[in-house]
Write a protein that binds this DNA or RNA. Structure first.
Lengths: 286, 286
DNA sequence: CGGTCGATTGAGGTAACTCAAGTGCGGTGG
DNA sequence: CCACCGCACTTGAGTTACCTCAATCGACCG
């Protein structure tokens, strides 16, 4: 089995050299969500098509010969390292098997902009298909276990297995739809609503993966949340405090507990101005 | 040939019934950009694969049997009509052959949000692949000539013609990349920069199609521009006036002339506050 | 000719940004 | 072990860019 370990380490080098903790120190936080029960043993270093389709959250085609296909290799990257860098040649997609990442790009200002926070089941690198070069970078926010999907191999498989081809198209389109949803949320929502929906969205995603949708750790900084939502980090911080005051959530540093999920979902704007009322309310409470 | 006309009219009905000029009266403006020379005769109602690939701006594969394939049918829709509606079953993509559209979706507020302004060479309906239902609607802002690309037919062709398959993947990915670019522009840009870049982007697209990139007509209302850029229609209007005062552009109603393209591209924010300075400057000029 | 709709412009309010100070935690080195 | 330092975060104060509300204007249409 040692040759497997070697191969994995070899592939891990892909982008490791460039993964200096340059922009906004990529935090070396412990790791993923609360429950770590399944992370004791190292993850299986290979995944077959069936597992890939399941992770992507699509119904697995009931075709026997799926199992015949040669499996896909994993790559393990540590927090702060890149799965792919901006400008890098595109040759494969990555499917997140475990861990938490951010995808970023550089705006014309030279500012880093967070595009997405991929986690288990999400696809990385889809935006590289067009120009054959990645316009964005994927940075691990925690140690990550990624399944490498060489694009040529994937599409040639899809040519033989129509169900797989459909899954590929649908997975790519899903990325596009999610981007549109983000665009809609960025416009015309107050900062409170943005942050509230962001938390609900995160909670839902954790829930779908079997983790607690009530209590989780934020893997990203306020800065990164702000970049993602189009807000300043101070506004994110203030808003989190306000939501906490409203008893909708409980925040302490990176730890978030959702108290009133329904309230978060329907929140449009804070009653009067809870942000300035904070100090006075604080005094009342004491 | 009359049966062709009949078929076209038949397919045009797809969504015509729902195309009431409901939201924000979809304007019955004359039509497209300035130069109308090529629109005298009705467009050819069929396009082959070669033409489709060319329109998509991809190198046409040098394979002879491309010409053998049965061609794709066109559909003509009038300004205000829908190519597809929200929630409608997905079964085909549309390639814009002529005309100008907007794609919109409904935010959680119930507000209409403009996602894109597709024009010649752009693909419609890609976001419908995922859930097999269109999450957005495509509304014609001028009379349009669309090429219908039944998705099943397209992908089965792609299975036989690898180059075509690549083009499909790349075209879909391109849509995604464009969405990301929009997201980047929405965050962290001032209203002036947003509007300026929007104009430059429009001008470039017209230029690439062989139209004038200096002088063109806006096909959409201020309202729609604002929705697209995340601004109020008043801010769009004011900003256009300000850009005009700075001698970067000339605007009269829907007519735009780019005077200083370089200046528009590099604009970050207006010198001091040109928006409030307007009235005083106006007086100085008189 | 009035009616409608898009566009312009003004006035005023406010949400969110910027700048800045202060806190708490974690890591490092004496 | 403790002191120091860095970094993420919190919180405050002041500013401003943009929104909202509202009036006016111009074009187009019946």
């Amino acid at each position: 089995m040692s040759y497997l370990r070697d191969m994995i380490n070899a592939t891990t080098e892909t982008c490791r050299d460039r993964s200096e903790p340059s922009i906004a120190g990529q935090l070396q936080t412990p790791i993923a969500p609360h429950n770590e029960s399944s992370c004791d043993q190292p993850p299986s270093p290979w995944s077959d098509l069936r597992e890939v389709c399941g992770l992507l959250n699509f119904k697995v085609p009931n075709q026997l010969h799926l199992a015949d296909e040669q499996p896909f290799q994993h790559t393990l990257i540590k927090a702060g390292q890149h799965a792919h860098c901006i400008g890098q040649q595109f040759d494969m997609l990555y499917l997140v098997h475990a861990g938490f990442l951010k995808t970023v790009t550089i705006s014309d200002h030279g500012q880093e902009v967070v595009l997405r926070f991929p986690m288990k089941g999400d696809l990385l690198g889809v935006d590289g298909i067009y120009s054959q070069h990645h316009p964005s970078a994927a940075v691990a926010l925690s140690d990550c276990d990624l399944i490498m999907l060489p694009f040529q191999k994937l599409t040639s498989l899809g040519r033989r297995i129509t169900e797989l081809e459909n899954i590929i198209y649908q997975a790519i389109s899903r990325d596009l739809v999610r981007g549109q949803l983000l665009t809609c949320s960025l416009n015309g929502l107050t900062a409170e609503a943005k942050v509230a929906r962001f938390l609900v969205s995160l909670a839902d995603r954790y829930g779908q993966l079997g983790y607690s949708s009530k209590s989780f750790n934020l893997q990203m900084t306020r800065q990164e949340i702000g970049s993602y939502l189009g807000l300043s980090l101070e506004t994110v911080s203030r808003t989190l405090s306000a939501l906490s005051l409203l008893n909708l959530i409980d925040v302490r540093r990176r730890t978030v507990d959702i108290i009133n999920a329904a309230g978060l979902k329907t929140l449009r704007r804070l009653p009067p101005s809870y942000l300035s009322a904070r100090s006075s309310m604080r005094k009342q409470l004491h």
